[in-house]
Each structure stands twice: as C-alpha cells, then as structure tokens.
Amino acid sequence: MNTRWYCTDCETEIDREEIDDHESDGHHVRGVLRPERLLSNDPWTFGNEADDDR
C-alpha cells in the first residue's frame, strides 16, 4: 500500500512525520491509501479468463 498525507488547511501534501505538527496547530490532515497494484472489479472473472487460455 502507498500512503499519502494531505493537510487540507495548507492544501499541500505532507510527510508522515509532519502529521503531529499540523494537527497540533489545529489543521485537518487526511490520508489516502492506494494499493500497489489495482485489481479488476471482479477477481473471479480474471480466473475464468486464465482457464480459457488452455
């Protein structure tokens, strides 16, 4: 997973180490998680396609 942190008050991306500083100043911090690889909407479909290649 990749994690990015944003301070919505400063409107900037911040490092994880800066979260406490921003929150102690009363700022709102938001985190966004993104998987390293994206899966299809229906993982079972991918399995069926793999079976068709035989």
Rank of each mutant, 00 (worst) to 15 (best):
D51K: 10
D21F: 04
I14M: 02
D20C: 06
R30P: 00
A50E: 13
V29M: 03
L39V: 09
P43S: 11
A50G: 03
G31C: 06
D42N: 14
R30E: 13
D52E: 12
H27F: 01
E36T: 04
D21V: 11
E18D: 15
A50F: 11
M1H: 02
C7R: 00
H28A: 12
R4H: 10
N2K: 13
A50Y: 06
D51I: 06
N48G: 10
D42E: 12
D9N: 15
R30W: 03
S24E: 15
D9G: 04
R4Q: 14
F46S: 14
C7Y: 01
D53R: 09
D52A: 14
N2Q: 12
T8A: 10
Y6E: 05
T12F: 00
F46V: 14
D20E: 15
S40T: 05
S40Q: 08
T8G: 10
D20H: 09
Y6V: 07
M1D: 00
D20Y: 06
P35C: 00
D21S: 13
E49R: 07
F46I: 12
N48A: 01
E13R: 13
E49D: 08
M1A: 09
D53Q: 07
D53I: 13
N2S: 06
N48V: 00
V29Q: 00
T8V: 15
T45Y: 05
D20K: 13
F46W: 13
T3K: 14
M1V: 07
G47M: 10
I19W: 01
I19N: 03
G31S: 15
N48E: 11
V32R: 10
D15Q: 14
G47R: 03
T8L: 15
D53N: 08
W5S: 04
D52R: 10
F46T: 09
E36M: 05
W44C: 05
C7M: 01
R37C: 03
R16T: 12
L33Y: 05
H28Q: 11
S40R: 02
L39H: 06
E23V: 15
D51L: 15
T8S: 10
T8N: 15
H27V: 04
E11G: 08
D15V: 07
S24W: 04
E36C: 04
D15K: 14
D21M: 08
W5I: 08
V32L: 07
F46R: 12
V29K: 00
E13F: 01
I19L: 09
V32H: 06
G47H: 06
T3H: 11
D9A: 13
P35F: 06
N41W: 06
P35M: 10
R30C: 03
S24K: 12
S24Q: 15
R37I: 02
R37H: 12
T3I: 13
N41V: 12
L39S: 09
L39W: 02
D25P: 02
I19Q: 03
C10N: 04
Y6R: 07
H22I: 07
N41D: 09
I19C: 03
D9P: 01
Y6Q: 06
E18P: 01
D52K: 13
S24N: 14
Y6C: 01
D52G: 09
L38H: 05
